[in-house]
Computed example of a mutant assay.
Amino acid sequence: MDETTDLTAHDLTHLRRCVELAREALADGDEPFGSVLVDPDGVVLHEDRNRTAGGDQTRHPELELARWAAAHVAPEVRPECTVYTSGEHCPMCSAGHAWVGLGRIVYAASTAQLVEWRRGWGMALGPVVPLPINAVAPGVPVGGPAPELANALRELHRQCAERDAVT
Rank of each mutant, 00 (worst) to 15 (best):
V19L: 13
E20P: 10
E20M: 05
L21Y: 06
A22H: 01
R23Y: 01
E24F: 12
E24W: 08
E24C: 14
L26R: 09
A27K: 03
A27C: 12
A27N: 10
G29M: 06
G29D: 09
D30T: 01
D30S: 01
D30H: 14
E31R: 02
F33V: 14
V36A: 05
G42Y: 03
V43D: 04
V43I: 12
L45D: 03
H46A: 02
D48F: 03
R51A: 15
T52Q: 14
T52Y: 01
D56G: 07
T58G: 06
H60E: 01
H60T: 08
P61H: 03
E62Y: 13
A66R: 12
R67I: 09
R67S: 11
A69D: 10
A71D: 13
A71L: 13
H72M: 04
V73L: 12
V73P: 14
A74C: 03
P75L: 10
E76Q: 07
E76L: 12
R78V: 14
R78N: 11
P79Q: 03
V83N: 05
V83H: 07
T85H: 12
T85R: 11
S86L: 00
S86G: 12
H89K: 15
H89E: 13
H89Y: 13
C90W: 10
C90S: 08
P91I: 00
C93L: 08
C93P: 07
C93H: 12
S94A: 15
S94R: 00
S94H: 02
A95P: 07
G96S: 07
H97Y: 07
A98S: 13
W99S: 14
V100M: 07
L102T: 10
I105G: 06
V106L: 09
Y107C: 13
A109H: 08
S110M: 07
S110P: 01
T111K: 00
T111N: 00
T111S: 00
A112G: 04
Q113A: 02
L114G: 04
V115L: 11
E116T: 14
W117H: 09
W117I: 03
W117L: 15
R119S: 02
L125E: 07
L125H: 02
V128G: 05
V128E: 12
V129C: 01
V129L: 11
P132S: 15
P132E: 14
I133A: 15
A135C: 06
V136C: 09
V136N: 05
A137S: 08
V140I: 15
P141N: 05
P141G: 04
V142I: 13
